[in-house]
């Protein structure tokens, strides 16, 4: 699904990723953990194609294609989804309208007809109910005046509607209360399938109590310092990130 080889990247003149390699297969859930500044969000932004991030070395393929040959919107239509750490507000643009436009862009790419308006509303309302979202959010401006938790739920709603093949969730758990965290986890778990892969970028182990990862990777100074199964997350919780840093430097 996703294959990253020796990736180096920089932003605003600072080298952040120093040769990162990672392979994610269909059906897998990966958690990428690490201290602040280790390059977690940079990795997510580079994969999504944010223009502020410059790739200086290495390769990334997505479903066998060179990811860097694709524009951000093409990556999205191919089934790559990024749940943003800080979802942006777009005042005046109706949330349902954005959702439907996005969905139809993906469907057009897949050779499907535009979604029927009734079918769209029905599906959206069902998914919102599952996420504990008031259907009124459909008719508000995109993220306009949403609380932090509401913005994150809205990200998960978009993901649920778009049914991506690869979802990268960047610190989706940060700032969530326990109810929101559970709702988000439920949304992610509902998407788990043998055809899809999920990458959770997170600072804390807490999210992994609700979404059980197949693999856990610890990022340190722009590289994967250690990989393991879910027990690695618990170990980190106990010993802290310094333990990894010391082990990496040893």
């Amino acid at each position: 699904m996703l294959e990253i080889k020796n990736l180096k990247a920089r932003v605003a003149g600072n080298d952040i990723l120093h040769g990162l390699s990672l392979a994610v297969n269909a059906g897998e859930v990966h958690a990428i953990m690490g201290p602040n500044g280790s390059g977690k969000s940079t990795l997510a932004q580079v994969i999504a194609g944010h223009e502020d991030y410059e790739v200086t070395h290495g390769s990334v393929t997505f479903k066998g294609q060179n990811l860097f040959d694709l524009e951000p919107e093409e990556r999205a239509r191919e089934g790559l989804f990024l749940g943003f750490q800080y979802p942006v507000e777009i005042p005046g643009v109706n949330n349902a309208y954005l959702l439907k436009t996005a969905l139809n862009a993906r469907r057009a790419h897949q050779g499907l007809d535009e979604i029927d308006a009734f079918e769209f509303l029905k599906t959206a309302r069902e998914k919102m109910a599952a996420l504990g979202m008031d259907p009124k959010f459909l008719n508000r401006g995109v993220n306009e005046g949403f609380s932090g938790g509401e913005k994150k739920r809205n990200e998960i709603l978009q993901m649920a509607m778009l049914e991506p093949e690869l979802a990268i969730l960047d610190e989706t758990d940060s700032g969530l209360d326990i109810d929101a965290l559970k709702a988000v986890a439920q949304g992610v778990n509902a998407l788990r399938s043998p055809d899809r892969a999920i990458v959770l970028v997170t600072h804390y182990q807490r999210l992994l109590d609700y979404i059980e990862p197949d693999f856990v990777h610890v990022l340190s100074e722009g590289r994967i310092a250690r990989s393991g199964d879910k027990t690695l997350a618990h170990e980190l919780e106990e010993k802290g990130y310094d333990w990894i840093r010391e082990a990496a430097n040893a």
């Binding site: 999504a48 194609g49 944010h50 223009e51 524009e71 951000p72 919107e73 990556r75 999205a76 239509r77 989804f81 990024l82 943003f84 979802p87 942006v88 777009i90 005042p91 005046g92 643009v93 109706n94 309208y97 954005l98 436009t101 996005a102 862009a105 993906r106 790419h109 401006g141 978009q158 778009l162």
Partner: peptide
């Protein structure tokens, strides 16, 4: 960028924001 990450081209995104 947010709109593009959702599969909407830059031009459509501008139109969407302007029409809103």
């Amino acid at each position: 960028f947010y709109c593009r990450q959702r599969g909407i081209s830059e031009e459509d995104a501008v139109n969407m924001i302007v029409n809103g």
